[in-house]
């Protein structure tokens, strides 16, 4: 994840629920009330780039508490985790977050979530093989699925898998595109050989 990485920057914009631990007069605007002070205990959704440092930074008092505490975002909440445990392939991750895994990795850097880590790992492995399966179906019909409308991507979506492929998060999409392009170039190369 480089400093200039666009996806990493967009992942940092994902919001997580935070609770402020002290009163802060000047930050009312974060809670949509610019004229009032932000009271301790106020819950605000903050982007990761802000929440992360506020949670790590020390207020400097004796107890060593931080400015905010945070919870897991709904995208990684219990409902989603249970659904992933049941069948990773049945959950459209994109509806939870376009940068689902990025968000998960970030959260695990901030707090220890052993179970979540295990679930995410299993989710990715299961879904990756499914992604690979769809990516191999190259040159089939329906080359312009509905996915193509979004961000000008040319996902080779064909019929049955469309639903699943629409639910891919950014990382999985990249994987799909790589696998798809690889299979396609391989095929083209083989055909080129035969011609000569």
């Amino acid at each position: 994840m480089s400093y200039y990485d666009i996806d990493s920057i967009l992942t940092d914009a994902e919001k997580i629920p935070c609770t402020f631990q002290i009163d802060i007069p000047d930050l009312g605007y974060l809670d949509n009330t610019p004229t009032q002070s932000l009271k301790a205990g106020t819950r605000v959704n903050l982007p990761l780039w802000l929440a992360e440092m506020l949670a790590i930074a020390n207020t400097g008092d004796a107890e060593g508490k931080s400015f905010v505490t945070f919870d897991l975002p709904p995208a990684l909440g219990n409902d989603v985790v249970q659904a992933l445990k049941a069948d990773p392939r049945a959950v459209p991750l994109r509806d939870q977050s376009a940068h689902f895994y990025g968000l998960g990795t970030h959260m695990m850097e901030l707090s220890e979530e052993k179970e979540l880590a295990a679930v995410l790992r299993k989710t990715f492995v299961t879904r990756a093989s499914e992604v690979a399966l769809h990516a191999r179906k190259v040159g089939g019909v329906g080359h312009r699925g509905k996915g193509a409308a979004e961000e000008g991507s040319n996902l080779g979506v064909g019929g049955a898998g469309e639903e699943f492929l629409r639910g891919l998060d950014e990382w999985e999409r990249k994987l799909f595109r790589k696998a798809h392009d690889g299979a396609k170039s391989g095929k083209e190369w083989m055909e080129g050989i035969k011609k000569n």
Partner: peptide
């Protein structure tokens, strides 16, 4: 910063932004 935490936090938020 430890004497005036609210200002410290505001400064941090501004800096991070």
């Amino acid at each position: 910063p430890s004497a005036d935490q609210a200002t410290a936090c505001t400064l941090l938020v501004n800096h991070l932004s």
